[in-house]
């Protein structure tokens, strides 16, 4: 589904701040893969997502999504088929627009063959209601409320629904529960699992929670210094504990896993 060949990205080349964020990274994501990504500070996790989503163009290499070369496709064009969520719940929704309008925007912009002047129908509204009720947050009865009135957890759940209301070719989740309180984070993770697995959505998820990284999805990447240093799946993965993972990192890279938040949460 998603194939990345040998991509590199250097920020501020030729200056004292030069930073090689991705160096010769390759990966192959199969249809329906649910991959968790974990790594040290500045390993290039978010940069990898930015490269896939098109926030910048890579210096070298190429990116294929569903067989199409998207290496130089503009961000707003590829995001029609790429769903994306950030850590900050404020980033994914328009606060002064209602829940219904936010969903309508997400739905209309991702649906194929709609004209710029298309609007949502009564049937679409009913569909939104059903989807909202699946979140179990009572949002289906507040469809005309501005999103600015919702809590962080509710906004993040709504963003998740918006990102998946039309099944994307790939869903990128960048620590999307990190800014939520533990109880809400748990709930959003459960929702994520049920939506991603239920909809057979190809998904990459960055997390700093080792346990979550191993319990969620079917494959785990460990990143360091712009590379994927470990790629585990199947039985090998199910036998791993967070401790093993830290150990493996040490063996591969030759240094301690340097991520304060990971260490605090294990």
């Amino acid at each position: 589904m998603l194939e990345i060949r040998n991509i590199s990205k250097t920020f501020a080349p030729g200056t004292v701040n030069e930073k090689k964020a991705l160096s010769g990274l390759s990966l192959n994501v199969k249809d329906g893969d649910f991959i968790t990504i974990i790594g040290s500070n500045g390993a290039g996790k978010s940069t990898l997502f930015n490269a896939i989503a098109g926030s910048f163009f890579v210096d070298e290499g190429s990116i294929f999504l569903g067989g199409q070369d998207i290496t130089y496709l503009e961000e707003h064009k590829r995001s029609r088929v790429i769903g994306r969520m950030f850590q900050d719940p404020l980033k994914g929704t328009a606060p002064s627009m209602t829940i219904e309008e936010n969903l309508a925007l997400a739905y209309l912009r991702s649906s194929e063959g709609t004209s710029p002047f298309s609007r949502i129908s009564a049937r679409d509204k009913k569909n939104f209601r059903e989807q909202l009720s699946k979140l179990g947050m009572g949002l289906e009865d507040r469809m005309r409320d501005p999103v600015g009135l919702l809590s962080g957890g509710q906004r993040q759940a709504l963003t998740l629904l918006m990102a998946t209301i039309v099944t994307p070719k790939v869903l990128l989740l960048d620590e999307h529960t990190a800014a939520l309180d533990p109880g809400t984070a748990e709930k959003v993770i459960e929702l994520t699992k049920s939506i991603v697995e239920g909809g057979h959505i190809t998904c990459l998820m960055i997390t700093h929670n080792m346990k979550q990284a191993l319990n969620t999805g079917n494959r785990t990447f460990l990143m360091n210094n712009g590379h994927i240093v470990l790629d585990v799946s199947g039985e090998e993965r199910s036998a791993l504990t967070p401790k093993d993972l830290i150990e493996k990192f040490k063996n591969k890279v030759g240094e301690e896993l340097d991520n304060d938040r990971i260490l605090l949460s294990t």
């Binding site: 064009k77 950030f86 627009m97």
Partner: peptide, 23 residues
């Protein structure tokens, strides 16, 4: 209330969201 109109409203309301979406 059309797709284009909703996109215009989102542009003024949340530039962060718009940058990451297909608008």
């Amino acid at each position: 209330s059309t797709r284009l109109g909703l996109s215009i409203r989102a542009t003024g309301d949340n530039p962060d969201m718009v940058r990451a979406s297909s608008v």
